[in-house]
Design a binder for these strands. Structure first.
Length: 281
DNA sequence: CGCAGTGTTTTTGC
DNA sequence: AGCAAAAACACTGC
């Protein structure tokens, strides 16, 4: 569930409380959290290193250690990265890793479904982290114009499938792909190549708007997602189609439908999002 | 009770 | 190419 707005919220909530802190020690409780290293080697490498900055790329968090190494974190489905200012003894379930800081405080990786991953790499060297290496452009960066989006949509694949492809655009997941398509009035099954210029512009605007609004609301908590402070987000109250199957569209009262696109649950308004199959290009 | 559904990414097979 | 399915998991809801 953590998509771009959730990961960005985690980044923003962790930044003021962990930048400048030095890792005194760490413990790994789930070996597969680290696909490329053993726990003892990993902890040995991060020990006594200071967090210089924390940046986000797509759904990845990149934590700079001493300007030399980078700790790469991907939360996948249910991962949480939470800062605990004081010792709290009742250890919750599903704790995959803990980092203790020299001046007290703890960073904890909690992950019910255990899909989350962490990597350690030389600064800027992402060749060993395939998903990060092949990541598409940041939708909230200045360079992401509607022309860039148009270039990525040149495919006969369903538009929803293209939006979820991280090599095309970084950071969109199931929630915001559905929400952006609804706002743009584009049917999720419409082939990318079939969108006209006006539609691409509208979709571009919708993607940027929904991501910014979701960040302003600290992300969407359906169940597991938490900010770096352990709080829930608020954007779940502002969703217009995602998980609203059978409820009336806010625009036309038509009931929201759910279909499968590329194996993923997809929610849309059959009246506001139409696809007349007359595109033959 | 069993089993489908949940959603991200990688891998494998057609 | 591009798509489907499976796999990595634990828990929820029917």
């Amino acid at each position: 569930m953590p998509e771009l707005p959730e990961v960005e919220t985690v980044r923003r909530t962790l930044e003021p409380v962990i930048v400048g802190k030095t890792i005194e020690r760490c413990e790994i409780y789930y070996q597969r959290l680290l696909p490329q290293a053993g726990a003892s080697q990993f902890c040995g490498q991060v020990r006594n290193r200071t967090i210089r900055e924390i940046v986000r790329r797509g759904k990845y968090l990149i934590i700079d250690l001493n300007g030399e190494l980078e700790l790469i974190v991907h939360l996948r489905m249910t991962g949480q990265l939470i800062y605990k200012p004081t010792q709290d003894l009742p250890l919750q379930k599903h704790v995959s890793a803990r980092f203790w800081f020299r001046d007290n405080g703890e960073l904890r990786f909690v992950d019910q479904r255990k899909f989350g991953t962490m990597y350690l790499t030389q600064k800027g060297d992402y060749q060993g982290i395939h998903g990060l290496f092949t990541l598409g452009p940041e939708p909230l960066a200045d360079g992401f114009t509607w022309h860039v989006l148009a270039e990525k949509l040149k495919s006969m694949r369903a538009i929803k499938t293209i939006l979820l492809d991280q090599t095309k655009i970084a950071g969109l997941g199931n929630i915001y792909a559905d929400e952006a398509l609804y706002r743009a009035g584009v049917h999720p099954l419409k082939p990318g190549s079939c969108l006209g210029g006006t539609e691409v512009k509208k979709l571009h605007q919708s993607i940027v708007a929904v991501l910014k609004e979701a960040i302003a609301s600290h992300g969407t908590t359906i169940k597991d997602y938490r900010t770096g402070s352990g709080d829930t987000g608020n954007f779940q109250n502002k969703l217009r189609v995602y998980r609203r199957t059978g409820k009336p569209c806010g625009n036309c009262q038509t009931l929201i439908e759910r279909i499968k696109v590329g194996g993923r649950s997809t929610h849309f308004c059959p009246n506001c999002q139409r696809w007349d199959p007359e595109c033959m290009d």
